[in-house]
């Protein structure tokens, strides 16, 4: 589904610069939850942004291939990329308050995705927005649709953003620290929702997080990122039970 090979990205400066990502590669299969785990500054977010080609122009991509369903994303034109974002690959960001536009109602912002990517009529779109909000576990969707982002609680906002990300039925969802600002009770509920997205909507998920505990019972595979390098990867159970890398062991110790 998604294949990343040999991806290296550098921040240039007067000297040689600093490598943000150092020959990173992994594959995500269909209907798989793939977790990318590492500390802050390890380059996790950069990978997510690179897939969507949303990286800052200042960064230099030195090498690498990013393939989505066999097509080379790096060769896509800007227009083709725009058509792909949201339609084929959805994204959920860490801070939903910043990701939403504060001036528009939540429903309208979900509708925007539908307007751009689908040919549904106005009435159908309206129904679909309500449907999406219910799907992510917002019971009073009719009310929530008419609220502004700041009127929602953190957990609700994160759900609304997931609803927006899956609006155009993408095949892959990139979730970058989707629950880091939420309390554990809500985190558990969001993880439950991800499980549902995978089993019912057959969406593959790239879950980016610093918290191993979060992915322990959820992900199929894991890659551990340390200072821009993948230091360990494999089936989640295998890595959790027999970690080989010292950094993985350190991460594991934080969740006991």
């Amino acid at each position: 589904m998604l294949a990343i090979q040999n991806l290296s990205i550098r921040i240039p400066d007067e000297n040689s610069g600093r490598l943000l990502l150092d020959h990173v590669g992994f594959d995500i299969q269909k209907e798989e939850i793939f977790s990318l785990v590492g500390g802050s500054g390890s380059g996790k977010t950069t990978i997510g942004l690179a897939v969507l080609r949303l990286l800052s122009e200042a960064l230099k991509m030195e090498s690498g291939v990013i393939k989505f369903e066999g097509q080379d994303l790096l060769g896509f034109s800007k227009e083709r990329m725009r058509a792909l974002r949201g339609k084929e690959i959805g994204m959920v960001f860490q801070e939903p308050l910043h990701a939403f536009n504060p001036l528009f109602r939540v429903g309208a912002q979900i509708d925007e995705v539908l307007r751009f990517h689908t040919a549904l009529s106005r009435k159908d779109r309206q129904e679909r927005v309500i449907d999406l909000l219910r799907q992510v576990g917002i019971p009073d969707a009719l009310r929530v649709e008419c609220l502004y982002p700041h009127q929602l609680s953190g957990g609700m906002r994160q759900r609304a953003m997931i609803a927006q990300a899956i609006a155009a039925s993408p095949k892959l969802l990139i979730a970058d620290e989707p629950t880091s600002n939420l309390d554990v009770t809500l985190q558990a509920k969001i993880m439950d929702l991800f499980r549902k997205l995978k089993s019912e909507l057959k969406i593959s998920i790239l879950l980016i997080t610093h918290d191993l505990g979060l992915v322990k019972h959820l992900a199929d595979k894991i890659a551990v990122l340390y200072e821009g390098k993948i230091v360990e990867s494999g089936k989640i159970q295998e890595v959790m039970e027999h970690p080989k890398n010292d950094f993985t062991k350190l991460l594991l110790r934080t969740i006991t």
């Binding site: 554990v184 009770t185 558990a188 439950d192 505990g213 979060l214 322990k216 019972h217 959820l218």
Partner: peptide, 12 residues
């Protein structure tokens, strides 16, 4: 109990 299972396993 609910808090425990959320904190330890992120399970509802």
């Amino acid at each position: 109990r609910a808090l425990l299972s959320a904190a330890m396993d992120y399970q509802v």
